[in-house]
Design a protein around this nucleic acid. Sequence first.
DNA 1: TTGACTAAATTGAACGATTGACTAATATTT
DNA 2: AAATATTAGTCAATCGTTCAATTTAGTCAA
Lengths: 227, 227
Amino acid sequence: MTTQKTVSRGDHTRERLVLAALEVFGRAGFDAASTRAIAEVAGVNQALIGYHFGGKQGLYIGVFEHIIDQMRRRMAPAVEQVTSRLAAAPQSAEERRELALELLMGVFDTFTDMIGEQFAAGSTRLILREQRDPTEAFQLLYDNVLAGMLSVLTRLVAMATGLDETSEACRIRSVMMIGQVLVFYVARGSTTRFLNWDGVDADNIAALKQQFRLVLETQLSQGVATS
Amino acid sequence: MTTQKTVSRGDHTRERLVLAALEVFGRAGFDAASTRAIAEVAGVNQALIGYHFGGKQGLYIGVFEHIIDQMRRRMAPAVEQVTSRLAAAPQSAEERRELALELLMGVFDTFTDMIGEQFAAGSTRLILREQRDPTEAFQLLYDNVLAGMLSVLTRLVAMATGLDETSEACRIRSVMMIGQVLVFYVARGSTTRFLNWDGVDADNIAALKQQFRLVLETQLSQGVATS
DNA sequence: TTGACTAAATTGAACGATTGACTAATATTT
DNA sequence: AAATATTAGTCAATCGTTCAATTTAGTCAA
């Protein structure tokens, strides 16, 4: 075996660069992150960025492909659970509502778990950066991950509330629901200060899950007023 | 009238620089924004940044002082409404709950209105930037604006839910509530795409307000499970 | 197995451009 | 005249990119 499958020398370097770039880009932002700093963190020569990715912008795209990969992998179990359980949904309105509620909680538990993970720290800022002034990277992320997640979520919200899945009201509700967890990603400085947290540990995550479950139950446990 | 009150020549320059810096910092981030670009947008000489603010960092602080000023001014009516109405709160649990609900909606209506304002576009990213790696600017913002807003909000949530105002559960609920609106600030790219919006206009704001009101009513219109 | 040949990968150095800060001279206002 | 404000220009440092030279890995004939 002369060729070690896909793990050639170049692949190793590319991976090191992507991981380093995720860290440096995430901490400093695209413009402030220097290719020299990225190369140093990766432990490779600076010129290899140009060689392997064409340049700084190319590396940036490479980082997003990595993010997409990780997010799909991380969310896969929860999404799969939803699709399989939804294949044979009960017809009783009450049972359908309860099923949707249970699945929603599963999805958001996963989403909440990721708040504390290190991978999220680097990628969150990069994703946020793309929200205001979307570039090619955002198109990639939205088409390959976000759109699907929003779609699944809206389907569950529709099932739980009785709203029309295609209605704007239902979509807005879904986005708002995400916001309840997203706030702990993006407003970390304010939240940790306000809650007297030292970072976000397992206990904090558990508390968030518990409160979110209570809110979700209260929010969806009755006939929901439409538009 | 030689001296036009406080609007001397230098004040005018400082204001132009702060507004330009808000725009450029907001669009490009601190490091990527060049003092030359800021000076050009402001229509003043680059060296005046050093003269009036001591340097780039000083200008950055100046921008946050401006943001604090604007946010206080913008939120003042809603906050004042809360404090005045709360001065003579009814003793009936049911009445207190309804009052809290009404006041909450007032606060969040104001908060929702600001989503579409141009001022928010520039300041949102600057504030987000400070959330992950807080600097002196964040301390200023949190102490002068955010802490107060969170405090008032938690008080209302406590009144509406019956939770202890000082409990972590109540604080988490409050933060989650903010998240439902905040998501439309920070995830603009995803939300506008998902909702097929072209930016955020008055109609969109109205729809958001309506849905948030419905959610809030559903969420708080009954005895709320504690911890 | 060996040794020559090739393509891929890596290196260090250099390029022109841009950065924030600073200075001395000038202009404006008090 | 004195204080304040503005200007054009210079500075060293750092930026992303490029390039020729070198090393490494894989192929194939002998």
